[in-house]
C-alpha cells in the first residue's frame, strides 16, 4: 500500500475525525466535501468534528478466510458499529472472544496496528474497537 495514501487519512484513522454539514447538521465519516442531502448548499460548510469513540454493534461477522494483514488474528470479529449520536463505520472487535460479540453490544475505540505491507515497511495504525467497560 502506498505510504501517502495511508498517511493522508491518519487524522480520521487515529482520532475519528468526521464532518458535520453546516447546513443540515448530518455527520459523516470519513470526512466528506459535499453533504448528500444538501449538495451545493453544504459546500464550504463541512465542518471537521470529533466523533464519539463509543458505539453499538449493528451487525458483525467472524472472519475465518482472512486477508494477508489479518492472518495472525484469525478468526476475528469484524463489525458494523453505530457511533453514539452520529454515523456508522466498520472495524474489528478485539480484546474478547469473537463468539462473545453480539448485536447491540457497546464498544469503544482503541488504537492498534492495522497492517504493514512487508516486515520492513511502514506500519499502519488506526482504530479497532473493544467491548466497552460496561460489557466487560
Amino acid at each position: 500500500m502506498g505510504i501517502p495514501r495511508f498517511w493522508r487519512e491518519t487524522p480520521s484513522r487515529y482520532n475519528l475525525i468526521g464532518t458535520k454539514c453546516g447546513n443540515c447538521g448530518t455527520i459523516h465519516f470519513p470526512p466528506r466535501v459535499v453533504c448528500p442531502s444538501c449538495h451545493r448548499k453544504s459546500i464550504g460548510k463541512m465542518e471537521r468534528i470529533h466523533l464519539s469513540n463509543e458505539g453499538t454493534v449493528v451487525s458483525y461477522s467472524i472472519v475465518h478466510d482472512a486477508p494477508h494483514s489479518f492472518k495472525m488474528q484469525k478468526p476475528y470479529a469484524i463489525a458494523m458499529i453505530e457511533l453514539e449520536g452520529c454515523c456508522r463505520l466498520t472495524a474489528p472487535i478485539i480484546d474478547c472472544d469473537p463468539s462473545d460479540v453480539k448485536i447491540g453490544m457497546k464498544v469503544e475505540a482503541t488504537f492498534r496496528k492495522l497492517g504493514e505491507q512487508e516486515k520492513d515497511d511502514v506500519i499502519h495504525y488506526g482504530y479497532k474497537f473493544r467491548p466497552a467497560r460496561s460489557e466487560r
Partner: peptide, 12 residues
C-alpha cells in the same frame, strides 16, 4: 496481541 507494539501501548 499481534496488532500491538510499543506504539499502540504508548498511545493507549
Amino acid at each position: 496481541s499481534p496488532d500491538e507494539d510499543v506504539i499502540t501501548i504508548s498511545v493507549e
